[in-house]
């Protein structure tokens, strides 16, 4: 792994400058890639952590005080040793940092580079619900309902409905305070602000339901600002959109 790390560092500039092909991106789903980078990272920090921990525990157990007048025997280091103990760790940490940065680089590009022709839905966050405006003018909302005791009873509205297999780009803004749109299953989130536009995109590969929720503190019902992303096969999606238009 170290060898790989160093080779990556050697070509760091080249790697960072490398443009990934746009077409391949369009078909990429963030989730598996995110999970892969995450595993790499866990192994990486796990190794570092284990080394430090084993050394610490060994020292803590091996160097207990043997007699009352015993003193520590750590010697003043020579200038060369001292410098080596600064530069070598610094170099290893930097190498690892850049290795990790390179690991996350492709994922970051996937996450931020919206594929051409993605289906665009306008998202508006408000205290405390979501509105999704479709290209044909249909607006689908989601508002969480709860009873007097505060217990959630259901969600009013269909929320975000998208067609399976077609990249979706969300163009987001807020009417009041800062919110944040988060779909845990798709590993993406971005804030919504009044007066600014932000983007988020994902590729809904399989039909199904996933939670989206607000992750920027926005007041009393912050935790009740969620709904479901429903992914439908194209035909069903078209039917849904048409039914919304009539209503």
């Amino acid at each position: 792994m170290r060898i790989k790390a160093f080779s990556v560092i050697a070509g760091a500039a080249a790697v960072l400058a490398l443009a990934f092909p746009g077409d391949a991106l369009a078909l990429n789903d963030h989730t598996p890639e995110w999970d892969k980078v995450w595993m790499h990272l866990l192994i990486d920090v796990g190794v570092i952590g284990a080394i430090f921990l084993v050394v610490s525990i060994y020292f803590l157990l091996a160097y207990t005080r043997k007699s009352e007048d015993e003193v520590g025997k750590l010697k003043q280091m020579s200038f060369g040793n001292s410098l080596a103990w600064a530069l070598i760790p610094a170099f290893i940490f930097m190498a690892d940092d850049f290795y990790l940065a390179a690991q996350g680089w492709k994922l970051w590009n996937d996450q931020r580079r919206v594929p051409e022709g993605a289906y665009e839905i306008q998202v508006t966050g408000r205290m405390w619900g979501w509105d999704f405006a479709y290209p044909n003018g249909v607006i689908s909302s989601s508002d969480v309902e709860y009873d007097d005791s505060g217990k959630v009873t259901g969600i009013d509205g269909d929320g975000l409905v998208v067609a399976q297999g077609k990249p979706v780009v969300l163009r987001m803004s807020s009417t009041d305070v800062v919110h944040s749109f988060f779909i845990p299953d798709f590993r993406i989130k971005e804030d919504l602000m009044p007066g600014r536009i932000t983007y988020l995109w994902f590729n809904p590969k399989d039909a199904g339901k996933h939670v989206y929720t607000c992750t920027e503190y926005c007041g009393i019902d912050h935790s009740r600002m969620y709904g479901n992303v429903t992914i439908l096969p194209q035909a069903e999606f078209d039917a849904w959109l048409a039914s919304q238009d009539e209503g």
Partner: peptide
């Protein structure tokens, strides 16, 4: 303006 910001 606010309504069309970000329109493509």
């Amino acid at each position: 303006e606010k309504k069309i910001l970000g329109n493509k």
